[in-house]
Each structure stands twice: as C-alpha cells, then as structure tokens.
Amino acid sequence: MVYYIASLSLILIGLYGVLVKKNLIKIVLSLSLINAGIHILLIAIGYIDGRTAPIFSTPELRPEQMVDPVPQALVLTAIVIGLAITALALTIVIRLYDHHKTLDVSKIRELKW
C-alpha cells in the first residue's frame, strides 16, 4: 500500500508541476517525476507477497514462486524510452533558449496557438 501512495503522489506532484510551473526545465523535470511514479506503480502491481525475482538461478525454483515478469519487461523498455524522450526535450529547450533568451514559456509567444 505504501508503494501505491508513494507512486501516486509522485504522479500528482509531477502533474502539478506540468500544469503550474512556467520554467521549461522544471516542466521536463516534472515529466520525469511522472515517469518515475508510473514505473513504481507498474512494478508494485506486479508484485506478489513472498515470491522471488523471475530468474531460475537454481533448479529447485518453481514458476509458482515468482512475481509477474510482464510489468518488469514493460518498465525496462519504458525507462530507456524515457531517457531518449528526456534528452530530446532538453535539446529542444537548449535551442529555444538560444532563440528567445528565456526559459519562461509564457514569454515565448510564438509557441502559443
């Protein structure tokens, strides 16, 4: 239960940052907070009490003693994609700063529709 509350508060804090903050780097940081929260949430849903990691390192281990491997594979992919997205977003932030000399989204008028 603690994991659910921790991950949910990470998601909500990140959402607050995306909605309220005006600094572009703060917005990207908030997005990575949401990312971390979702990863913890998925892994926590796949966890089963008293079971071990899905690796058959000794022959005595049975499939009934293991946690769900599917969310782990999913999150592994999501972390790598998250790094790619963060790096690309930060590159766009650098270019925007070069162009407008500010990090405040409300001052970058041409971006608004």
Binding site: Y3, H39, G46, Y47, V75, I79
Partner: peptide
C-alpha cells in the same frame, strides 16, 4: 531501491 525490494533486479539496475 524500491525496484530491488519489489523483486525486480533488472529494472533496478536499469534505473
């Protein structure tokens, strides 16, 4: 650390 406690060592290493 949470991933390690939740029996996901692969994900813990990646993170």
């Amino acid at each position: 650390i949470y991933f390690y406690i939740l029996q996901a060592p692969d994900v813990a290493l990646t993170e």
